[in-house]
């Protein structure tokens, strides 16, 4: 099987935004003074990534939407307590994570299968960023995507949160340490362990095709 047929060509999807650190700090200042438009701009920058983070932690779109909503409402109300405006991103992620663990304190969140509309929307979102050539390629990529989702959801909580932040959200170890409130050493160690688990399962699925499209 060719590397193309596995749909493994690198397709970079970044969470980076066009806004500068300075602009961000100004927005936070304005939002602290009750400027709703500034807060909406902050939501435009961070809303989708916070939502995706929550979704990767809890596995349910409905819950992720509700928790994103709670996170931003809470953020608006407590924005005055944020001492360093430049830490807005870590602060939002931390609120989001606390909300997830408060909601699911007694039980581990159950991954829900997406309903038909969600699945279609996801598929369309995927196609917008990663156009595929044929149905076979598309089917294989979907299969791989499902596998990755399952692998991530099967990770223990403390591995899953740091893995998602590092591998998908491209956060620095320092930021991750602040968000999960654990030592830098613990974060590094957990990220490595999570990577090994994820790598082993993907490798098992792809067999001899593993790594073909991603030479060093």
């Amino acid at each position: 099987m060719s590397e193309d047929s596995k749909g493994l060509r690198p397709r970079k999807k970044s969470w980076k935004t066009d806004i500068s650190g300075q602009q961000l700090e100004v927005l936070v200042d304005r939002a602290k003074n009750g400027d709703v438009q500034a807060f909406q701009d902050l939501y435009s920058v961070f809303g989708e990534r916070i939502f995706n983070y929550i979704y990767r932690l809890c596995g349910s779109r409905e819950d992720a939407e509700d928790l994103t909503q709670d996170t931003f409402i809470q953020a608006f109300r407590k924005l005055g307590t944020l001492k360093e405006n430049k830490k807005i991103q870590s602060w939002l992620y931390r609120i989001a994570q606390n909300n997830v663990y408060q909601k699911f304190r007694s039980k581990r969140p159950q991954t829900e299968s997406l309903d038909q509309d969600d699945a279609q929307e996801l598929s369309e979102a995927q196609n917008r960023t990663t156009p595929r050539k044929n149905p076979e390629e598309s089917a294989l990529a979907e299969e791989l995507e499902e596998l990755i989702e399952e692998v991530i959801q099967s990770l223990p909580d403390k591995y899953r949160q740091v893995f998602v932040l590092a591998a998908i959200h491209k956060m620095s170890y320092q930021e991750i340490s602040q968000i999960v409130n654990r030592s830098l050493a613990s974060v590094k160690s957990d990220i490595h362990r999570a990577r090994v688990v994820v790598r082993d399962q993907i490798k098992e699925y792809l067999g001899e095709n593993y790594g073909m499209s991603h030479p060093l």
Binding site: R9, K13, E48, F51, T68, E145, I168, V198
Partner: peptide
Amino acid sequence: ASLEIVEDNLPKLPL
């Protein structure tokens, strides 16, 4: 390679 596969095959869910 596994990280690139994860990054490339997980779509961003639209809000």
